[in-house]
Design a protein around this nucleic acid. Structure first.
Lengths: 339, 339
DNA sequence: CTGAAAGCGCTTACAG
DNA sequence: CTGAAAGCGCTTACAG
């Protein structure tokens, strides 16, 4: 209870609370000796300003909100790392909230941010959800959407170039001599999954005109890749190559092939998307598309901070709002691995 | 700017702000029709209470603080998952702060929590740091330490049974017929590393009296395990088995052995600690000690919440404050793998 | 059951 | 350069 407040510091330093506030916030217009007295008093009393009080009167929280579907897994961990890195550099705190795919929870999380944060980073990869954002997002709160389908009116959106990555992978597979390329798709309602599928389709149509698409439904989990693998092996004619919309499904598929004694890449080539750490350790090492998630987080945070500072003229999604991906060729795709 | 406040709701509902507050907070003593009017007005105006204002007057933030050395990696990701899970169930927010091993930053992070959180979860695995906690931790703020060396006076501490896990592993290796067991240690100033080393030493002395210890210095990174592996191979007499203080170092060691053409477990058995996801995917699959990190986080959060609610009679670290570990036998240790 | 008022701990014009 | 005062948006005794 004996929490020390600005009044205590004022008393000890023998000045008004206004002066304590100015001195501690480095407002310049404070006499040298007074400033020293204030600092000494603050130190002596181990004074730390009460954040809620400060926020209430200054309208600033020094905090960035992060609303994610989940906290678990490599993707979120990497994203948070990037966000954390730039937030720390700016001495900003991070308030995180996960909603586990539950739209009601997402709405609640969004609304609860009022008065807690100066700006919001929202990751909402589910196709239906963006409409919900409009209902719960405070229009006056600077917001950056990450990998979302559509920007609300003027809201900034940062995206990974999922489409370009998928195109690059199909180009690589075709260049490696594969002609019958199956695709294991991600969840229907997932924006990333949708873009990757679109890339596969477009590249296929362009590079192998006349070749037919071969799309299997997956859900980004290893198990669905495993099922898809079995399905492919049971087909009358097996594919030359399989491109999975993410690495986890590629691994599931790889295990299905291994169980069936099918050699990768000898019998069938395989490729994934994401470049998770496991990708380089499995045998054969997985050809994939690297996405710099930490960079995505860092860039989103920087964009948000600029917006909070009012530096941003709501420039409609420029090309710099798309994060490039990188083709990583390893053994599984059956061509000479690059260094 | 036209942020709607409790006054607006009061005006529309034609009641005082006090009544709005009571109605919205479910205080019971509000007439049915008045409550309805208030709810209708709040809904119509899309009112959300301003968190800072509420915190300031109610002395509650509905937020738990989490201060970690880092946000990156499987361990922290899992820990956050456990914490997040119980926090969400209690509708509490999470304010996270990482200090990257920098004691000054840690101090700042700790102090900055004042007025932002109702309680604090602190992970401080570095041996020197606990003393710093005393200087920056608000003594009135409920706090739970995770995997820290020493509890400050009355502060609750939750630990993983690193010592017991290491003992179990040595028992397993000895039972598998190994007699010359080397240990790759973790960072000198790391509490977990220290406990695992202690377990190795004690078990060795007890089970193989007369056998000499063989400890190599590592730092929990893969590269240090790789170095240690080379060192072991260069020794006049090679070990029967290598026990690495964590899985990442075990993997580094495994790669060193593979490069040298040394077979695991045929030539040398290998074991790790942590059971990271990779452990089951490498070849041979790694025998290790599983630590339920998410459970650690969840339990710490529950303990903290109880403390915040004032339910806890600062019971000095009971046995329930130590989280059990589990031996996971796979191929790398050279005995029959368990299901 | 309801309202007027004080107060939470700060910051920030406004005077001087 | 400094202080008195108002105000940030709530909650909570205190009366009635």
């Amino acid at each position: 209870m004996p929490s020390v407040t600005i009044k205590d510091v004022a008393r000890v330093a023998q000045v008004s609370v206004a002066t304590v506030s100015r001195a501690l916030n480095g407002h310049g217009n404070v006499a040298e000796d007074v400033r020293n007295r204030v600092f000494a008093a603050a130190q002596e009393l181990r004074y730390t300003p009460h954040a809620a009080a400060r926020s209430l009167s200054s309208r600033r929280t020094q905090t960035l909100g992060v609303v994610l579907p989940d906290l678990h897994g490599e993707f979120f961990s990497e994203l948070m790392r990037g966000i954390d890195q730039v937030a720390r550099a700016k001495r900003l705190h991070l308030l995180v909230s996960s909603y586990h795919g539950n739209p009601d929870e997402q709405g609640a999380a969004l609304r609860a941010m009022r008065g807690r944060v100066d700006g919001l980073l929202v990751l909402s990869p589910f196709a239906e959800i963006p409409t919900l954002l409009g209902e719960h997002l405070d229009p006056t709160l600077p917001t950056v959407l990450i990998n979302s389908q559509s920007g609300l009116d003027g809201t900034a959106v940062l995206r990974v170039d999922n489409h370009g990555g998928a195109v690059a992978m199909v180009e690589h597979l075709v260049a490696s001599g594969h002609r019958n390329i199956a695709f294991i798709a991600g969840p229907v309602d997932n924006f990333d999954a949708h873009e990757r599928l679109r890339g596969y389709r477009e590249a296929l149509a362009r590079l192998l005109p006349g070749a037919s698409e071969w799309v299997l439904q997956g859900d980004f989990d290893e198990a669905s890749g495993h099922r898809a693998g079995h399905e492919l092996l049971a087909a009358p004619q097996r594919p030359d190559a399989v491109f999975a919309a993410n690495d986890m499904m590629a691994l599931g598929c790889l295990f299905a092939f291994a169980q069936a004694g099918v050699r990768v890449p000898g019998d069938i080539a395989l490729a994934g998307f994401d470049d998770i750490p496991l990708a380089r350790y499995v045998h054969p090492a997985l050809t994939t598309i690297r996405v710099n998630i930490a960079e995505l987080g860092a860039r989103a945070a920087r964009l948000l901070i600029a917006q909070v500072a009012g530096e941003v003229a709501a420039e409609p999604s420029s090309s710099s709002d798309v994060l490039a991906t990188q083709l990583i060729v390893r053994e599984s795709s059956g061509s000479t691995p690059s260094a």
